[in-house]
Amino acid sequence: MEKILDVKNLHVNFATYNGTVQAIRGVDFHLNSGETLAIVGESGSGKSITVRSILQLLAKNSDIPEGQILYHGDDLLQKSDKEMDAIRGDKIAMIFQDPMTSLDPTMPIGKQVAEPLLIHHKVSKKEAMDRAEEVLRLVGIPNPKARMKDYPHQFSGGQRQRIVIAIAIVDYPEILIADEPTTALDVTVQAQIIDLLKELQEKIGTSIIFITHDLGVVAGIADRVAVMYAGKFVEYGTVDEIFYNPQHPYTWGLLDSMPTLDTSEQDHLNSIPGTPPNLLNPPKGDAFAPRNSYAMEIDEEEQPPFFKVSKTHYAATWLLHPDAPKVTPPESIQKRFEKFQALKSGGSVK
C-alpha cells in the first residue's frame, strides 16, 4: 500500500496573551492510499488542529516550529501560499463540522458546489454546473437541477451537510479530511452520512482522515484508528486492535465510557476523572498520568515512547515496558480482550 500522506514529528504552537500554547507536541502518522484513518480524542486534544495544519488553515497566531507533512514525498509546510491554493480543494479537500454555518448564505448552492472546479480547472461555467448537479445527485439531494438555484437556508441540516460533502468531493480529491462531519447532526442522519461517505469512497477511491470524538462512529467507517490525547497520539492500530485489544489506559477509559449492547439501563457509564492538562505548561512526563489510576512513578518523570504491540499496533504507555508490573484492566476491557482472542482464532466478534 502506498503512503500518500506522511506526517512526521508535527509540532503546532499558538501565541496567546498568556504565553505559548503547545497544542500539538510531536505527532507522527501516515495515510495509506484508499484507506480511512480515524483520529479520536476528547475536545481540545488537538484533532482539528492536526488536520487543519495539513491544509494550512490555522489561525494567524499559529506556528509550526518542527515537523514535516509529506504529500507524495513533498513537504506541504515548505509550499508557498499559491502552491497551497492549488492543492486545497483539488488534491486535498475538507468537510467541515457545522453544516449550519459552513455554507455562504448569499450564494446559490449550485454555484458553491461548482466553485472548486472553476478555481482549479479551465472548464466553462456550464460544464462546472453540470458536474455540480451530478455530484449533488450523488450525495442524495433530490431534484438537484431545480434546487441548485436555492440558497442554504432553504435546506435542512442533513441536506446542508450533504451539500458540504458535495463541495469537498466535486473535484475528486485524493485525500478527504472529514472534521467531525456528523457531530452537528441527529443520529439517524449521522448514519446516513457515514454510509454516504463509505459509498463515495468506493466510487471515487479517495483516502479519508476522519475526525471524531464518537467511538461508535469510528467502528462504522475506519480501517485504522489513532487515539489522541493532549496534543499527542497515545495509541494507534487497526479498528479491531483498538476496540478489542486496547493497551493504553486512556483508550481503556474512552471505551469504558461508551455504552455497548450489553449495557443495561441500571448500569451507569464510567467517565475519565479529571481534566486534560493545560498545554501552556505541558507536563514533563506522561500527560495522562494525573488522570490515570494505573500511573507509575516513571509516568511523572518521563514521557513513554511507543511500544510495538503488533506490526500495525503501537501504544505509548510504560505499562508495555518489559519491566512494568502486570496490571488488570477494567472488567469491560477484559471482555474485549476475550473477543479479540476469538477474533484471532477466526471467530466472529459480533
Binding site: 491544509l55 488553515l57 501560499d81 499559491k82 491554493d85 492549488a86 492543492i87 486545497r88 480543494g89 483539488d90 479537500a93 475538507m94 467541515f96 457545522d98 454555518t101 459552513s102 455554507l103 455562504d104 448564505p105 466553485e115 472548486p116 478555481i119 482549479h120 458540504v164 463541495i167
Partner: peptide
C-alpha cells in the same frame, strides 16, 4: 466565520 474557512479550503486565494 465557517463559510470563509470553507471558501479558503476550496483553493480560493
Amino acid at each position: 466565520s465557517d463559510y470563509i474557512e470553507l471558501a479558503k479550503s476550496k483553493g480560493n486565494s
